[in-house]
Amino acid sequence: MAAYVVLILAILSRFLPHALHTAAWGVTALGGGLLFAGSRWDQSSRWKAVLAVLGIAVSDWVLTAKVYGFPFHISAYAITWAWYGLVCLAASAGLHRRATAVRVITAALALSTGFFLLSNGMVWAGGTMYPHTLTGLAASYAAGLPFYRNDVLSNLAVCGILFGLPALARRMHAQGEHGELTA
């Protein structure tokens, strides 16, 4: 149940920057939320990744068509939706019942780096904003560096909270059972 609540809140977090007029910062809880939700699903529950992607797709439509006022084209999002589905499946495979600090940090960094490479590469390859040269590709990645930094920081912070607080609570509870904590 916690995975679904976190997933819904993570998707809704995509709207918060617009309400606070901080959209340029590129900070949401989506990446960390997907890693956490995926880590709670075993590999036999792959259809749950589809539900996560459908939630993201609805939020993409609302953001694109209603918040930004742009036409919505599924083809503009299909690759990132596949990426988000892959994130859920990878978290299920790599973090389910094995979410150590090293694994979670590695997953958060891989998520941010993969999304940075994918999304900026897609902007370069599929758009007209940058020339289709190595210089244009470099410019696309250079322009995305501030967003990448913020994505790394937000994914690490969200993962730290979502994975760290339950681990801390379990540790405190275990210490309390052994009489190591005093009130």
Score class of each variant (00 low, 15 high):
N150K: 06
G121E: 13
A110T: 05
T80H: 03
N120H: 13
R149A: 06
M129P: 00
A82P: 04
L109W: 06
S154W: 03
L95G: 05
A91W: 09
L118H: 06
A143V: 11
R149M: 02
L117A: 14
A90K: 10
D151Q: 11
T135D: 15
W124M: 09
Y148L: 04
Y141W: 12
A125R: 11
M129I: 02
G94Q: 12
A167R: 03
H96G: 07
T80R: 02
L145A: 07
F147R: 01
G94W: 15
V87Y: 07
V123C: 02
A143H: 12
P166H: 03
R97M: 09
L134F: 14
A143M: 13
A110G: 04
V104Y: 06
G85H: 11
Y84I: 05
R97G: 04
L145M: 11
Y84L: 11
G164Y: 00
L168H: 04
S119R: 08
P131M: 13
G160I: 08
L86Y: 06
R97T: 13
L153K: 04
L117S: 08
M122A: 12
S119F: 09
I105V: 15
P131Q: 14
L134N: 14
I105N: 06
T135V: 14
A91D: 05
T100C: 05
L156C: 10
S92V: 12
A99Y: 02
A107L: 03
L89S: 08
L165F: 08
R149L: 07
R98C: 04
C88Y: 12
A142P: 00
A108Q: 08
L111H: 10
I105H: 08
C159P: 04
A91G: 05
F147T: 00
R98S: 08
P166E: 01
S92R: 11
G114C: 03
L95R: 11
A93Y: 13
C159Q: 08
A157G: 09
Y84W: 15
T133C: 14
F147E: 02
P146A: 09
S119M: 14
D151T: 13
V123A: 10
V123D: 00
A101D: 01
T106Y: 05
V104H: 07
A101S: 01
A82G: 15
H132F: 14
A91V: 07
A157H: 09
H96P: 09
T128E: 14
L118F: 07
F163D: 01
L117W: 10
S92T: 11
G144D: 02
L137R: 13
L95N: 09
G164F: 00
N150D: 05
L145N: 01
L95K: 08
T80C: 01
V123F: 00
Y84Q: 10
N150H: 06
N155C: 13
V102D: 05
V158W: 06
A125L: 14
T133L: 15
G160R: 10
